[in-house]
Nucleic acid binder design. Structure first.
Length: 191
DNA sequence: CAGTGGATGCTCT
DNA sequence: GAGCATCCACTGT
């Protein structure tokens, strides 16, 4: 039986739960897809979240309804993709950090200019390049939109660790990875 | 394998 | 003007 696209209600839950449950789901865009093997959650209540300072021009999508896509430019170069979550009134999102490539692998290789399978999507900036997800997709809705997320068919074993690459609220254990996956962004997660 | 530094552009102070 | 939710190339073990 083919997996179903995740409904809005899936994203209208506390962001840590959504982030954990997204590991093993499938992200699809424009001829390519990958199994989500690493996520992080961000919530307005902690300083690492873009929404922490209140609504701005950049982060307004975070304050909108769950089930939409938040894309922003990191270090002037990389697009990073997030899925907006939480009950209405809470700004939160799940950062997709790594995928195991599934479909359209040759297309991913040409978009990335890289050959190795475990280098195609093993990082938040890499996977957006591999799937062709750019800033123009900021704010799109998941259901009926160009980007899809499909339910996992079994629950993977998940490793919880600290988030990576941030300087604020570094102690929170809000990173979720598929245990033993060789496609995660960093082989040795911080404790 | 670990550590360092440059690229690059937008957002917010 | 500072600071990035990153990646890659390069250095030295």
């Amino acid at each position: 039986m083919a997996p179903a696209q995740l409904p809005r209600a899936f994203f209208e839950r506390p962001v840590e739960e959504v982030a954990k449950d997204l590991v093993g789901a499938v992200l699809v865009h424009d001829g390519t897809s990958g199994l989500i093997v690493e996520t992080e959650s961000y919530h307005q209540s902690e300083a690492a979240c873009h929404a922490h300072v209140g609504p701005t021009a950049r982060n307004r999508v975070l304050f909108g309804p769950a089930g939409h896509v938040y894309v922003y430019l990191s270090y002037g170069i990389h697009s990073l993709v997030n899925l907006v979550t939480g009950p209405d009134g809470e700004a939160a999102a799940v950062l997709i950090r790594a995928l195991e490539p599934l479909e359209g692998i040759e297309l991913m290789r040409s978009r990335r200019g890289v050959d190795r399978l475990d280098e195609l999507c093993s990082g938040p900036g890499k996977l957006t390049e591999a799937l062709g997800i750019g800033l123009e997709f900021n704010g799109v809705e998941l259901s009926d939109g160009p980007i899809g997320v499909f339910a996992r068919d079994s629950e993977p074993e998940i490793v919880v660790s600290k988030r990576v690459g941030i300087t604020k609220a570094v102690e929170l254990p809000w990173r979720f990875s598929a245990s033993g996956s060789r496609f995660v962004s960093r082989p040795r997660p911080p404790a």
